[in-house]
Design a protein around this nucleic acid. Structure first.
Lengths: 244, 244
DNA sequence: TTGCAATGTGTAAATAATACGCATTAAAAG
DNA sequence: CTTTTAATGCGTATTATTTACACATTGCAA
């Protein structure tokens, strides 16, 4: 095992969509005083870790994601580096870092990645620590500057969702148009007209209809579609409108 | 003077527009063997430097920009962090780093910023080293992985230019519509219809006409405009179209 | 005075966005 | 087995935006 680089880490903001809400995966940070049994810290953080000597940022982010979700080959994108002098300065944060086996440096730079997964496909399995999905609209108290990092990730996700077809990464391979619409509504915080949305999506040649229907729903089952990145890359056109 | 952090640096991609071309500011990297007078290295790099112990990324980037261009209060945006294991591995790069007074670490992470300035307003003044504007379309051989960093910056500049009004940062305070159009054409690599572009821009309430005309041109002088960020923030609307 | 090299304006056609209403389907309830 | 329920799926009229394209105007310079 190669050594870690003490002052550089990678934090992953793992977004998941459950057909209804946008969620983020957090890890519990709990510290109990051994003598008094007093709870010194109990809050939640993003999933991050130092990078290793022989490791790129992308590799480190993929490693962390794999460890947390068990998943490989997932959409991952670097979105911002955080290196403020006062990133880590609350008493709780200091206390936590002093208790970690790797020791700590006062000035830790972290590179933020966000990843998009269909969270109905994930079974949480990390044994050592408590890991949970939280809806974006109802977050717990978070440690370090992770709340700020999450906000930046969200901002980037929203901006990118408007201009590139990354929403599909949050859905299973086969999805319905209504599911896609819910996703856009939830992430962008709007409501959209069902019929117009459908019309728009059906124009996109890279959203391909299947000869297959939804199963196990208690109403008329909808048609399933898949997204083809290949077709997208071939047919995309760039436009510009720094909006009015 | 506080100490530098040896393994973290900031690199600035300084873009300038001269009403015709998009340019980038580079610094010559020249190393001559003292005995033989042989030229060991002669190429160009971005303007970067290690960050200081008590300094944020943003502050470091502003410091570097000030040193290179003499300018303060300039548009600056972090766009990507580079930390690949093999970022610095050519013999020339190693040689250069060994010759720098600060010493070097093998694994240097750099945080990339790009900045936008009206390059007709800058007088280059850095005495110690040779600094020059190069058009994007005609770049010299570049050291380290700076070519790659520049490409990423350009990609981000283009993406942002499509969706946000940052082009004005590349123009003087007062500009003509034709200048704005040339800027968009040059950066996005397209040509646009003059009349339609004008129509589009005139709709934008945040591009405000002045009672003032261009001077010193040998043809009909055009009307001048200014950009108001304040009006933009008030009137902007978000749309979404992950394009067809 | 005239030529030059820009700026400044208008209109028609095509395309895309928005606002709606109603028939259809499959499962569940009676 | 009929009805109810809760979705899906489709169509059309209206408005707004984008695109394509031609000619008159202005101020300087020859």
């Amino acid at each position: 095992m190669s050594r870690i680089i003490p002052n550089i880490s990678v934090d992953c903001v793992i977004f998941g969509f459950d057909f209804n809400q946008l969620n983020v995966l957090l890890v519990e940070r709990k510290l109990i005083d051994e003598k008094s049994n007093k709870v010194l810290i109990d809050d939640w953080t993003l999933t991050g870790y130092h990078i290793l000597e022989e490791e790129d940022f992308d590799t480190a982010a993929a490693r962390i994601l794999k460890k947390m979700s068990g998943l490989d080959n997932i959409y991952l994108e670097q979105f911002y580096a955080f290196g403020g002098v006062k990133r880590v300065n609350s008493p709780k944060d200091m206390l936590w870092l002093q208790n970690q086996s790797e020791g700590f440096s006062e000035r830790i730079v972290t590179v933020g990645y966000f990843s998009l997964i269909d969270n109905t496909s994930v079974t949480l399995s990390l044994k050592e620590r408590n890991v949970k999905w939280f809806p974006i609209s109802n977050l717990p108290t978070m440690g370090f500057d992770h709340r700020e990092i999450l906000e930046k990730a969200l901002e980037r996700l929203r901006a990118k969702l408007r201009s590139e077809p990354i929403g599909f990464e949050l859905l299973p391979e086969k999805f319905t148009i209504t599911q896609l619409q819910r996703l856009y509504e939830e992430v962008l915080g709007t409501t959209l007209d069902r019929r117009n949305f459908r019309k728009k999506v059906l124009q996109m040649k890279y959203v391909i209809p299947l000869d297959e229907k939804q199963k196990g729903v208690k109403h008329k089952p909808a048609q399933l579609f898949i997204f083809s990145r290949e077709v997208y890359e071939k047919t995309k056109t760039e436009r510009f409108d720094f909006s009015i």
